[in-house]
Nucleic acid binder design. Structure first.
Lengths: 200, 200
DNA sequence: CGATTTATATAGTGGTCACTAAATAAACTG
DNA sequence: CAGTTTATTTAGTGACCACTATATAAATCG
């Protein structure tokens, strides 16, 4: 009975699939999201997945790029050259803390946390993307505070990583923001101190 | 031919097995170490593993406890009540940075990084252990700086997490220590500031 | 409309995962 | 030395992993 008549849907929306993958990867991390999870969430079969994206890692990269385009901190605005550096850096840290703790499911920074994936290819992609962000901060500091741009950039990078990881383990938005504000205040004091040192 | 004569070795050293597991879990993280990795490193078969440890997660807990016993920061000494708090906290951060970057293979804090495991049971065990450390710092701050012990404890916790994660992604010991020293300096200034505020 | 291309559907692949049943050798106990 | 316990051995388990060979339906295009 019921001989053949195999049916077929039209092509699925591949950009929508990237958005779905972005949410899953952000929520659970690269390794904890399986192909079966992805194809189920997109309501497609594995061959459609591979025809569209090539591999799980390639889709992860597209998802991170989409995340960066949609959610990355507006470094250009935050770190505007005409702003007082202390204010700019404080604003950056606070904006990060706000974003990392905003959503109850999508915690922390998807790219920062991607750097701790077990899969080597996925980790490398995240590291490359994160490097760009750190470089932008470093370039800004080279302009506004060249005497110890590296140390400040490292301090900011470590603080951002700590904020992201803490957000992932449930630290509340309020507490994240308080830590960010404290760090911003500390940097402001440090800039003041080295300004007056330089002026003496 | 060669009928039977199955041989058997004596029991393996279970404590040595915990040490081997500790190194593997610290190096790669809980999820990235397989049963096969563990049994191969210990040179035993899976049934010996389960007879000795019960499960992979249970061994992870024993390995973390061993790590804590062997490597955990001597909070009692670092945070001695008769020490100036600013000095004690700076010493704590610097000691952490030193330890996280000391070994080229065993990077960061095994327990802190365990909190990001994909396996729920392993993550919970790490969170419970980490909570103890944070609580010790919090109790110390309640004694020496009760007016904002929570904010300071959060700042320290976030900084420690950032240092650990950064160590895992290759930040050099030198840079980790510079960040820790900067954070310690910032906290010293903050304590000074709030002391003088309180005195006014 | 007919030919070609594209992306779907079914139904798998081999590999690895944590874990175990059954048999038996060593160690322990009387 | 005999009986019991303990921990080893071999040889698997089913579940899940990322990924794919083959067939065919829809979309595209002359």
């Amino acid at each position: 009975m019921n001989e053949k008549t195999r049916q077929r849907r039209s092509a699925f929306d591949r950009e929508a699939g990237v958005a779905i993958a972005q949410a899953l990867f952000h929520e659970r991390g690269y390794d904890a999201v399986s192909l079966a999870d992805l194809t189920a969430a997109m309501d497609i079969n594995p061959p459609s997945f591979y025809a569209a994206y090539g591999s799980k890692a390639a889709l992860f990269e597209r998802a991170m790029l989409r995340y960066a385009h949609e959610n990355s901190l507006p470094l250009d605005e935050l770190l505007a050259p005409d702003r007082p550096p202390a204010e700019a850096i404080s604003a950056l840290l606070l904006a990060a803390a706000k974003q990392y703790g905003r959503d109850s499911i999508l915690r922390g920074c998807m790219i920062t946390e991607g750097m701790r994936a077990n899969d080597q290819a996925a980790r490398q992609m995240a590291e490359n993307l994160a490097h760009g962000g750190i470089q932008a901060i470093r370039a800004y500091l080279d302009e506004v505070h060249p005497q110890d741009a590296q140390a400040l950039a490292d301090y900011i990078a470590v603080t951002l990583r700590g904020l992201s990881a803490s957000a992932c383990n449930g630290m509340s938005s309020k507490r994240l923001m308080e830590v960010a504000q404290a760090a911003g205040r500390f940097i402001a004091r440090e800039l003041e101190a080295s300004e007056s040192t330089a002026a003496s």
